[in-house]
Design a protein around this nucleic acid. Structure first.
Length: 286
DNA sequence: CAGGTCAAGTGGAAGG
DNA sequence: CCTTCCACTTGACCTG
């Protein structure tokens, strides 16, 4: 099983689990943060505790985790009891669930991890809950985020194999990779919606301006009609004035002469075709 | 401390 | 029925 093979070396908290974790229950009742019983970082030798080296990394991945824990969370390693770092590190590979975890989550855990967790009864994963059942927030390392982003660029959705492989590579749970992609898609969609909204606002303003201008033209034409009723009556059947460009179209004049003293637009005016959101509005004036 | 960010939980819909 | 995705929400953490 891929993740199991992958996580074979992922032993963060292995030794810890023997003291503070109850791997028997995958998403409940875990007590990951017994600070008083947890050895301080200074006293935690990575050599003595191979589990803390996150052996899977092989290439220093585990090291980056610990660096991340200190860097992104601004954990004062010197002043912080090991428990804080422990919580950070544990949350990085945590089974993410509440003590109030519901059926669905339990199902996922049972299908995805329970077997492996039970096989390795010294689970490499720790709950991100603390003693009081408070959820701890996982922060992805820069490397993890970068790789996820890179993967997202290639494909915004993952098939199970890809998910598994990525989880393996990132030393994460498949579920975490899945959640990241879901949230990433949501963020992308949100951004797109915001952009569309801005575009629509601009288009709306443009249309309002256009509307004002056309209303003004109508008023002007009405005034003109009142001022020269006879002349307009004679010309009415012969000329069509485009309200947009104010040129006349090629309609025969009252004498049947098709020659037009005014320029004729060679193309119809599609006022909205430059707006991708409004291309369905095919408003032709001429 | 308020507001933003983001990992993760939840429930429903869709597809197989 | 199960899985996956999505929309919405929650809560931990960060930042000004």
């Amino acid at each position: 099983m891929g993740i199991e093979a992958c996580n074979t070396g992922l032993v963060l908290g292995l030794s810890l689990s023997s003291t503070v974790e109850k791997p028997s229950k995958p998403d409940h009742d875990q007590i990951p943060n017994k600070i008083p019983s947890f050895p301080k970082l200074e006293s935690t030798s990575f050599d003595d505790e191979p589990s803390l080296t996150l052996g899977l990394s092989g290439g220093g991945r585990g090291e980056s985790y610990l660096v991340m824990a200190a860097a992104t969370q601004k954990v004062d390693v010197k002043s912080t009891v090991g428990g804080d770092l422990y919580r950070q590190a544990s949350s990085l590979s945590a089974v993410s669930s509440f003590s109030s975890g519901k059926v669905k989550r339990a199902r996922e855990i049972s299908s995805e991890e329970l077997m492996e967790v039970e096989k390795k009864n010294n689970s490499s994963r720790l709950s991100d809950e603390d003693e009081e059942g408070v959820r701890k927030k996982l922060r992805l390392s820069k490397q993890q985020s970068a790789l996820l982003e890179e993967s997202f660029k290639q494909h915004s959705t993952l098939n199970p194999k890809q998910k598994q492989a990525l989880a393996c590579e990132l030393n994460m749970k498949p579920r975490q990779v899945e959640v990241w992609f879901q949230n990433r898609r949501a963020r992308t969609k949100l951004k797109q919606n915001e952009a569309d909204c801005e575009l629509l606002k601009k288009s709306c303003e443009t249309l309002k301006d256009e509307n004002r201008r056309l209303q003004k033209e109508i008023q002007e034409l009405k005034a003109l009609k009142l001022a020269q009723p006879f002349q307009l009556h004679m010309q009415a059947p012969t000329l069509a004035i485009c309200p947009s460009c104010q040129t006349t179209t090629g309609v025969a004049d009252a004498n049947g002469n098709s020659e037009d003293p005014y320029p004729i637009s060679s193309k119809p005016h599609h006022f909205y075709n430059n707006n991708p959101l409004l291309q369905h509005v095919d408003h032709v004036f001429c």
